[in-house]
Design a binder for these strands. Structure first.
Lengths: 362, 362
DNA sequence: GCGGTGCGTGTAACCGTTTACTGTCGGCTA
DNA sequence: TAGCCGACAGTAAACGGTTACACGCACCGC
């Protein structure tokens, strides 16, 4: 069947590689090769083809390319939410590196729901993204883990690499790359900072179970206490989710329940710290004069409220994830499988040395 | 050529629709129809096919689908940056609505650069996204506008709809949908709020030229002054970009330049307001006791600093953009082309009535 | 008993690329 | 001058779906 020329019927359609080939008087293979770049071609032909591309305003169809070619030229990122600064910064890193490598960036959100996360991974599987970057924690029961392992295998089979970004591995024999950051070290450092300032009763606000980043942070907190020979009081670890409102609630309830038995607060992230700060202020306690407060993440609220916190290299995390995955696609053997990025504390103005011992009530 | 079965050679590959068809003992057409949903099919066949899909862990190849089918099932959003709360919230809305409609979400970032924006639109054109949502302002020279119009036509030709989200239209005969929000009304309302509290000398912090949202906001500010018969002093309009640091800088420089000649500050957005607030505080001026301050956007920093501001329905903006575009894809005639979303002021604690007239120095 | 109807399914063309395999041609070597 | 080689370019077979068209068959009314 003869192919329609762009002008021979009423309905216009986007120009295809065949139109370009015809216009330049060459075959489609030649056009394809010249556009792909790295094939030998006569300068004259090359010029003719490029001129045809320009004159016809041709852009290649990504679906056809993805179908025929080996690679989809796209990178997928799956996060809890796009508005949460933590994820947004990682996503920014992913997007940046994707652009550098000439890849498209696809995003999916889960709202923290394990079921939606699994569904989104399937979606990305359909898409044959070159890599699927999973960011953030979900509470993982065994059924979830099992299905995720199955999906990880399927992804590997389809040629895309799964990258776990700041979350626990799936197991030794599951094909996945891991890029994480030093939660324990950061928590240790900032707890030590408080301890060095004389604080002994430090309230920890966050999650204890199921969320690996929080578990690591609390581990760092405990280890710092131990290293400084300060007895560990489980009663100082308060449980709450990672939102601003929860920080507010935790402090409110704690202060309502009895006399204050702590001189410093270590919030599991900056959002919680912001909420906690508000509750403290409403209770007449000013940071840092009356009480010291630190957070974790070094994200927007932190600078605004002069919070001493732990800096997490969020964008670098995203960039590294993409880089690792694509590097591994090129060179199966030489590329790293596991990267740990460092963290460091950022000192602002939310900690004061403890002058005289504030005797704990409890 | 006979098609390989999944097991007949060493290299495994993802299962295709043919594998499913073979496994279920039907033709590929039947599988495709059953999976697409809306075709009549015998219950027995249907069950067999679905079981085969499950047993073989089949997922359709999105590229093949996009190539063969009419629609790409994807939605594209192009923003300045993913970390900026304004864009992040719009993106969240887009993502949410895309998920509801079963579409994939592709994101591109421009960093505010017109050239990158154009390149990103081309990228989305390759992708044949069902709609391309452009958010945010760029300074538009004529060359830019001309190329964008050309791209808009090309997008329309390829069957995807361009949506301009909170940015000026491209012209009457350019195929594009527009969804915007009431900047002028919001600025008018919040300026009136200050005026009603007795303020007469209100410093405006923001951009005057080239950025349509800021231009609309300043127009609302001026109109409110006029409506309240307050003389307009161009000297009270301070020029700066939309970052936090700029708010800080503008206030610093203003206060350093001479005696304070204003009793309230209207910041072009909340970020600027946060920066301004810090500069004011460092200058010994407390908000709201010594000076009133309002912002625009109602984004995260606003609640933290108790800022009275204008609420912009960011997520709704994103959702509406997707909904409009897809609705229009279904029904070319009946769908709206232009939507204006309302804004309203949110009163917190950053404005105080002016008790006695603070005589302007200038 | 026969054409009509409609449901359910199969056949195969097509979507727009990439790329393995062939072919051509000019120039160089022996 | 024959033979070979390398540089370019063309032919056509994939890639994995969707869907127009054709077809078989059960059931209907006459």
């Amino acid at each position: 069947m003869v192919r329609r020329a762009a002008s021979d019927n009423g309905e216009p359609r986007p120009t295809t590689i065949r139109d370009v080939a015809a216009h330049a008087g060459v075959s489609v293979a030649t056009v394809s090769r010249i556009l792909s770049g790295n094939y030998p071609s006569a300068p004259a032909t090359r010029t003719r083809v490029l001129r045809a591309v320009r004159e016809l305003d041709y852009v290649a169809n990504a679906h056809a390319r993805g179908l025929a070619g080996a690679s989809s030229r796209s990178v997928a990122i799956i996060v809890n939410s796009v508005v949460s600064p933590h994820y947004a910064h990682v996503a920014q890193g992913v997007q940046t590196q994707a652009a550098v490598e000439g890849k498209l960036c696809i995003v999916g959100t889960t709202g923290g729901d394990a079921e939606r996360e699994l569904a989104t991974v399937q979606l990305m599987r359909q898409e044959h993204a070159e890599c699927v970057i999973l960011v953030g924690n979900v509470v993982a029961d065994d059924a979830y883990r099992e299905r995720m392992v199955e999906y990880a295998r399927a992804l590997a089979l389809a040629g895309s690499r799964l990258v776990l970004c700041g979350r626990p591995t799936l197991g030794p024999d599951v094909p996945a790359l891991v890029v994480e950051y030093d939660n324990t070290g950061g928590a240790h450092a900032i707890t030590s900072h408080l301890l060095s300032a004389g604080h002994r009763r430090i309230l920890f606000l966050g999650r204890r179970d199921g969320y690996s980043t929080q578990e690591s942070r609390i581990a760092g907190y405990r280890k710092a206490l131990a290293d400084h020979h300060v007895p560990h009081d489980p009663g100082l670890e308060v449980e709450g989710t990672m939102e601003r409102g929860e920080g507010y609630r935790m402090i409110r309830e704690r202060l309502a329940a009895g006399p204050r038995d702590f001189t410093a607060v270590f919030a599991g992230n900056d959002l919680i710290a912001a909420g906690a700060r508000q509750a403290l202020r409403e209770h007449g306690l000013r940071v840092p004069d009356d009480i010291s407060l630190v957070g974790f993440d070094d994200l927007p609220p932190a600078a605004d409220i002069d919070l001493t916190t732990v800096h997490v290299p969020h964008e670098e995390l995203g960039r590294t994830a993409v880089r690792m995955a694509l590097q591994r696609a090129r060179d199966k053997s030489g590329a790293p499988e596991h990267v740990m990025l460092g963290t460091h504390i950022v000192i602002r103005d939310s900690v004061r040395p403890l002058i005289h011992a504030d005797p704990p009530a409890r």
